[in-house]
Design a protein around this nucleic acid. Structure first.
Ligand SMILES: [Mn+2]
Ligand SMILES: [Mn+2]
Ligand SMILES: [Zn+2]
Ligand SMILES: [Zn+2]
Lengths: 152, 152
DNA sequence: CAAAATTTTGCAAATGCTTGTCAACTGGCG
DNA sequence: CGCCAGTTGACAAGCATTTGCAAAATTTTG
């Protein structure tokens, strides 16, 4: 029996690959070499890298890219809703494409692994709670921190 | 009709006031003047102040207290499980006593107000999800960000 | 109760991540 | 191909938080 919240593979890369370059250009944003490199990294990525990690990957493609540009680009993309910013644990910001279906995260506190999941029931309950408190949810954050259950 | 997750007042201050001084002393932690002041502020507090705000309140009681000591004390208390640390939005850490019942937070993105709530159904669902993914939850974070619904 | 042993403090300097400044550069239209 | 506002790289600055250290406070001993 398949549980409805189990996710096979990455939710973000399963969907059709969006054409960020076109989207951005249409919005009047210039497609520069650094931005193209960063966008490519983001679309190819299955994990949730932080700025430094994106910078490392970018440098391996074009060694002239600067960390500042990575930060600036992440901010730009976040403001445009292209990517999501997470702050697991309280560590540095980590990013992922926003194109996939909404999902939340389970972080393995032993290994740091991040597992994506989605529960429509929780999403619904959140709405109900907010509503009952007189609010509309704009966004939310649900993170579970746990460790692998020991087979005993 | 009372909704089961509505909370009247602060969850943290509704419960019996724990004797932190004794607890700490028994654990071999020295109970100093700065620590006493900070503990008093924490137990009296209804909100979720950050280190700077706790510092301000502390200084108004004992002007010789330093911000370093506030940070050091917060870290100590967090490690001991006496307080919880939050990072709403990605802003500076904000703290609250851990003594009350577990609850999550709804943040008003317009005013910054923090509303506490608890949903046993969501708590239960989280457990089920983690379990189905092969994990035991150690802790979790659920934050709803919203704005007051307009009466139209 | 005083001295020794140990922890904690205040201050300043250091850290880690992120943003700001600015001269040099370049993407995209004409 | 040339123009020029938008963008970049280099590096300084900002912000929250942590750390080194000598002095001060607390607890332990005698
Ligand atoms: Mn994700
Ligand atoms: Mn709270
Ligand atoms: Zn969600
Ligand atoms: Zn909860």
């Amino acid at each position: 029996m398949l549980v409805n919240w189990r996710i096979i593979g990455s939710m973000t890369t399963m969907n059709h690959k969006p054409d960020y370059e076109k989207e951005l250009r249409d919005a009047g944003v210039r497609i520069t070499r650094p931005r193209r490199v960063i966008l490519d990294i983001l679309t190819a990525t299955e994990d949730h890298p932080d700025a430094m990690e994106i910078f490392r990957r970018a440098v391996s493609v074009d060694s002239s890219i600067s960390l500042s540009t990575v930060y600036r680009t992440m901010k730009l993309l976040e403001e445009r809703g292209t990517i999501h910013r997470h702050a697991f644990n309280g560590g540095p910001s980590r990013f992922e494409q926003a194109s996939g279906a909404h999902h939340d995260h389970l972080i393995d506190i032993e290994t740091g692994d991040v597992i994506e999941f989605r529960s429509d029931r929780i999403e619904k309950l959140q709405e109900e709670i907010a509503r009952s408190l007189g609010y509309d949810i704009v966004h939310h954050r649900l993170e579970l921190y746990g460790r692998k259950r020991q087979a005993k």
